[in-house]
Structures are given as C-alpha cells and as structure tokens.
C-alpha cells in the first residue's frame, strides 16, 4: 500500500516549510495531504488513514492533543504514527503528549534534516 502523510498546522508559513522539506518524498510514491486546523486534520486522518501525521499542538477547532487522543482511541486508526510538533522549551506539552499517546515529538523551529530523516524512517523509506 502506498504510504501517505499528513501535515497539520494552522500557520500557512509553517505548512509551507513542512511541505517544502518533505515534498521530495512524493517522488518515492508518498502522497502528501495538508490540513489547516484540528478538525480538518481529524477528517483527513479518518478518511485517508495516513501512515504518518505531523501534528501541530496549537490549532483552532481541535488542538493537537485532542486530535491525537481521538486517533489513539480509535482502533481503526491503530497504524497511524503521530509526530507532535511542540514549541521549543514547552516541556509541559511533551508531558501532555505522552498522556494522549503521541509517538514522537519534534520541536519548532524544527531541524529540516531531522524532520526529513524522521519522515523517511517512519514511512519505511530509510
């Protein structure tokens, strides 16, 4: 099955940074989706069941923790890996992320190379 990936962030410029960092994975057959709020992210996840979700914490409608909790509480979405994007220095976010079952964390501003390597690894491309 072709791998799919979702980028969920309400800030357009962050979405552009994430998309441009990860766009070459499309050449490997990965389909890339984007969402600009938590509700849209959850809708895409339920519809597409992406392999990997890069999920911002602070988003309108549903925040990243709520989205993560909904995904991790749904057996149909058991294969979805969630990478929470938290602000550097916000360790409290990380603790909350543990509670809602996030698989990984990356801090913003993210290291593009680390982000890319993480995506490749989680998608089984590395």
């Amino acid at each position: 099955m072709a791998a799919t990936m979702l980028i969920a962030d309400d800030e357009p410029h962050i979405r552009m940074l994430l998309e441009q960092t990860l766009e070459d994975l499309e050449d490997e057959g990965v389909t890339l989706f984007v969402a600009s709020d938590g509700q849209e992210a959850l809708d895409v996840i339920r519809r597409e069941v992406p392999t990997v979700v890069f999920l911002d914490v602070m988003m309108p409608k549903l925040n990243g923790f709520d989205v993560c909790a909904a995904v991790k509480g749904d057996p149909a979405l058991a294969g979805v890996t969630i990478v929470l994007l938290t602000a550097k220095g916000q360790e409290v976010d990380r603790q909350r992320g543990v509670e809602v079952g996030a698989d990984l964390y990356l801090t913003k501003p993210f290291d593009p190379d680390e982000l890319h390597a993480t995506a490749e690894r989680l998608l089984g491309l590395a």
Partner: peptide, 20 residues
Amino acid sequence: RRELVAETLERYREVNLLYR
C-alpha cells in the same frame, strides 16, 4: 516564495545547529 521558504529552512538549520 520557495526561495524564501528555502532561506527560512536554512535559518532553521542554523538555529538547530546552535541548539544542538
């Protein structure tokens, strides 16, 4: 826009290098 994004990503790299 892509050039600006690439420039920003480069700054991200540098910031992360400094953090690291």
